[in-house]
Amino acid sequence: MSATLEVRNLRTHFFTRAGVVKAVDDVSFSVGRGEVLGLVGESGSGKSVTGFSIIGLIDPPGRLAGGQILYKGQDLATLTERDMRHLRGNRIAMIFQDPMMTLNPVLRIDTQMIETVQAHAQVSKAEARARSRDALGMVGIPSPEERLNAYPHQFSGGMRQRVAIAIALLHNPDLLIADEPTTALDVTIQAQILAEVQKLATDHGTALIWITHDLSVIAGLADRIAVMYAGRVVETGGASDVLDHPRHPYTHGLIGSVPSRNKRGEKLRQIPGTTPSLLSLPPGCAFRTRCTHATDACVQEPPVSDIAPGHTARCFHPVSA
């Protein structure tokens, strides 16, 4: 079975006045039908830029500086903007962190949804409205017919995010990229959204890339995990492999610093130092200045090595399992 999306050696660089920011630097991963990939990293790790690169929303001074984004074998990086527009919002959709930024505050929900339907399907307005109503119902919005006439500000944060998800689902996309869609939401509302998204992946076979900094959310949702640090994927593998037997020292430290992984009231294991600026990354492994395993070898760029079938780490000195 071929993957829905395969990203190979993706590089997205921002050519700023202060220098070249290698926000995404040699990133590779793939997602199959109905699979959930968790893309995990801290702020500035390049996880969101990876998402934006796939859907073709990188603005100058940033641009794709190399690599392939293969959607069903077709390289999205070489598509014209016209061809990309046929895919975006249709076969490939994205949900953003802040639903207030994705919904137009001065247009009613029905206007925004009907427009999206008609952008990719030759249907009447009535038909488009009916589809929109069904999509709202599917994400659990009560009385969808009336709610179509509402404006975004008349919804709560959780409901607004559902509307954004409903819009993303209008054309039953093959690939959905979710960029921290529940970070701003309360725990009980987050669980509702996760339940909807999970159903989607299983029922429609949508491939899902879930971008987050929250390891606990990803633990319950993802099939596979890719961990990013300073623009690179440092570890990939099945969710249990990565979370229970992390091999890269960064992943190991990150999981160790989650409070529930520590004894109550005792000091949390912490990673020393702070994330380096992408403008002045140390040569070689970007994590070596914070790493307890680092040696002279780490001045060289470590290669991606297979540690177990389907489990890779970019490290000379992987933590023993």
């Binding site: 709560s156 959780g158 409901m159 309360d186 725990v187 009980t188 509302i189 987050q190 669980a191 509702q192 996760l194 339940a195 999970q198 929250d214 390891l215 606990s216 959310v217 633990a219 319950g220 949702l221 993802a222 099939d223 969710a239 249990s240 979370l243 999981i255 989650v258 529930s260 992984r261």
Partner: peptide
């Protein structure tokens, strides 16, 4: 609330939700 808290030790769970909004 405790049931909904995502935990790093859970794998591929079924998310269920408290019905309704705050």
């Amino acid at each position: 609330l405790l049931a909904e808290v995502p935990r790093i030790d859970t794998r591929k769970r079924r998310f269920t939700a408290i019905k309704g909004e705050i």
